[in-house]
Design a protein around this nucleic acid. Structure first.
Lengths: 153, 153
DNA sequence: ACCGGCATGTCAAAATGCTGACATGGAGAA
DNA sequence: TTCTCCATGTCAGCATTTTGACATGCCGGT
């Protein structure tokens, strides 16, 4: 009487490695690893790079914005920002002109560092995408998006 | 003269959220979050659950095997195993009969806990997969696999 | 037999991330 | 206005994970 009802598997799968979650995690880990190694040569961590990329695109984002954008907590993002500020790659006002949000901006050194690191990161993305047929890329993006929405919504 | 040569983007993309890496990370984060919440009710962390799942399928795996299987370092896996052992969910010999690898096995309590937690996790996977067209699932699995291989190989 | 390479388990230290909690500022309802 | 709700920034404590290092046991070629 330990387990009378076997759990119905999400879909036909011989073992764990056939599960979407496993593949997703594995791909994500591989990407994280590759980015870690590449960014280390530029003196950046993955969260730091992610913040720089977001800030280059949307200057003035707040700490909370960056936390959401990089999928970590506000507290973690705060630590990252402190590191970037100490490195002179971003600026952050000590007081808020209005509200509590403190808008973060890239310094020219930050922009420069980002542009250098971006080369390395993009080449990784190119290598990663190289494995999948080009005509399936839109579907892949869409499916990843759908999965996220299905979980978050 | 700051950046004479713009970096060629990996593929046509208006912003960062169009990049495969971003989508991948986002989906992975959403899954991780959902699993964290679900497994907490069962007193398990994601790495712990992952180890139990692997051990149920392949009894006798070593710490290093589990580290590779869960995409963490041997040291991290060791901490996880210690937790599982303290909880009485696994057994681990103190000495190796041959070689250095110590084969890990599930206890009946471990199997029971796994079967309970599996329901919650599978329902998450079902929900996640629910967002993508069923006929695209094989391609999705294949593409995730291809990306991993392109990065690791 | 010997030795070099390699995988494993483990220790120590540091970095990283999260949970819980609290104070502040703003928007909207009563 | 006043009050309630929500988002933000931040502090403290804890958990998790990684890097770096070292000792042990096997397996290959020499």
């Amino acid at each position: 009487m330990e387990n009378p009802t076997p759990v119905p598997p999400p879909h036909a799968a011989k073992d764990v490695t056939e599960h979407v979650g496993y593949r997703l995690k594995r791909a994500s880990a591989a990407l994280r690893n590759a980015m870690d190694r590449a960014l280390r040569e530029h003196g950046l961590t993955v969260p730091q790079y992610s913040c720089l990329e977001l800030l280059d695109e949307q200057p003035g984002l707040s700490n909370a914005d960056l936390a959401r954008g990089t999928f970590v907590t506000r507290q973690s993002a705060n630590v990252v920002l402190r590191g970037l500020k100490d490195a002179g790659l971003i600026t952050r006002p000590a007081t808020a002109a209005q509200g509590r949000a403190l808008p973060v901006h890239l310094t020219s050194a930050g922009r420069e560092r980002l542009h250098l690191a971006r080369r390395a990161v993009y080449s990784i993305e190119v290598r990663m995408i190289g494995g999948v047929p080009a005509d399936r890329l839109p579907a892949l993006l869409s499916d990843l998006d759908a999965m996220t929405e299905a979980l978050d919504g």
